[in-house]
Design a protein around this nucleic acid. Structure first.
Lengths: 238, 238
DNA sequence: ACCTGAACACCGTTCAAGT
DNA sequence: ACCTGAACACCGTTCAAGT
């Protein structure tokens, strides 16, 4: 039993609807920030498919077409939501902790944020940062931290993007069902795969994979930044 | 000038439409494989939004509702397409080259495949492998390769998932526009970020970031598998 | 069993009319 | 400028009717 019509936060308890006049209201009912906040709540409460322009309008007690006076389209709403989410990512460790620890803390906070909003992962991967102030502020903090730690300029953005790709992929993995690797009837045809799955420790498996990858990535990045400081660069050992 | 109505592969050159009788055809017009193949072509030619049940039906010269005699829903079509795409990922290096080189070759092929089908990234991250034979076969080859190379069973799947997360995130990054990091008006407020972007070499930037991350990941994994074989595990160097 | 065609309950978006 | 309400061109999916 769904409850979609909210039984009216009624001013008049028994009238069918407190209809608004047809014309322009004396002061605006909507703002971009208000639309963004409502969209975030909708996304958190009902998930990816729950964010429709109609549902958003209903939340704001407005006709769907009213939204288009403040945003260009639905993609525009998603961009605003994305910047809001990025504002919540913690990059405060840069300039405080060593660069690798700061990178790890940022990556964990980043993954957490997008694990809560997996629908935004494809948006984040593809949306230009201009006119997304919190997003730019985040990249500034990270870039400044890496640069100050001695990373050569030509590598900084590539390192950021590499970590980000791992983080966003890991955020998606968070949404996988527990039995995603259950081979079903195909178990007999895939003995090594089946054995590996059985040997995998239980608990938060997505987190375990993320931490394995994060540690590996950081170890490799330490080598990349300061060749010679880390044993093993000669590679191959039989 | 779009050309959506294909001008008829006409049997009768001037009649309005070669209408089929209303009832069941003497032998089936559709198969799951045929639907899958048409969906792949549609996805490649028109992108994510081009794959609709109506477009798929038109390609197959059938009413949209006919599809539901062979697939459960659109998600089911995407699952079939995903298994088809996974069949094209090259994991032949496992058991032939050293495990780290095989892992790198697999990752590159995997990223290429999903860069061609970014719409499938969220599908791949979340879809159970049972009844996806090619997908299971891929994981079997990879798991067997890592296990044979001495990876402890409790780590194998986590390593696979970690690499996969990086690969899928990198496949999404492939879709980013060239100017994604152009800070526009915000450049003055983000000097380190702006400088890092200017110092980033041109060319295929997504590929460059992928290769940086892949090398780092592999270096770290070598350390994880064989502690002591690689210098630098003592970490911190001021 | 496997197709057609009509129908349903949605989408995002546009636009004239209103103040 | 900023709202409403009607309208448009789509979606994915269901189902009775047909053979």
């Amino acid at each position: 039993m769904r409850q979609d019509e909210p039984v009216a936060p009624s001013r008049q308890p028994s009238r069918p609807a407190p209809r608004r006049p047809r014309g322009r209201p004396s002061n605006p009912l909507l703002t971009v920030d208000g639309i963004t906040a409502a969209a975030v709540r909708l996304l958190e409460e009902r998930g990816q498919d729950g964010l429709t322009m109609a549902a958003l309008a209903r939340r704001l007690d407005v006709a769907p077409s009213a939204l288009y006076n403040h945003v260009a389209d639905k993609q525009d709403v998603l961009r605003a939501v994305q910047d809001h989410v990025n504002a919540g990512i913690d990059c405060s460790a840069f300039g405080v902790l060593p660069w690798d620890e700061a990178l790890a803390a940022w990556a964990r906070s980043y993954r957490d944020a997008y694990a809560r909003h997996p629908a935004l992962v494809p948006v984040m991967a593809v949306t230009p940062v201009r006119s997304a102030p919190h997003t730019v502020a985040m990249y500034e903090r990270v870039s400044a931290g890496l640069t100050a730690a001695g990373w050569p300029g030509h590598l900084v953005t590539n390192v950021v993007v590499a970590v980000e790709s791992f983080v966003l992929g890991s955020a998606l993995d968070t949404q996988a069902p527990e039995d995603i690797f259950d081979p079903g009837d195909l178990a007999a045809a895939a003995p090594a795969f089946d054995a590996a799955n059985r040997a995998r420790p239980g608990g938060d498996t997505a987190l375990a994979a993320f931490e394995v990858g994060l540690q590996a990535l950081l170890t490799g990045l330490r080598v990349l930044r300061a060749p010679g400081s880390v044993p093993g660069e000669e590679r191959r050992t039989p």
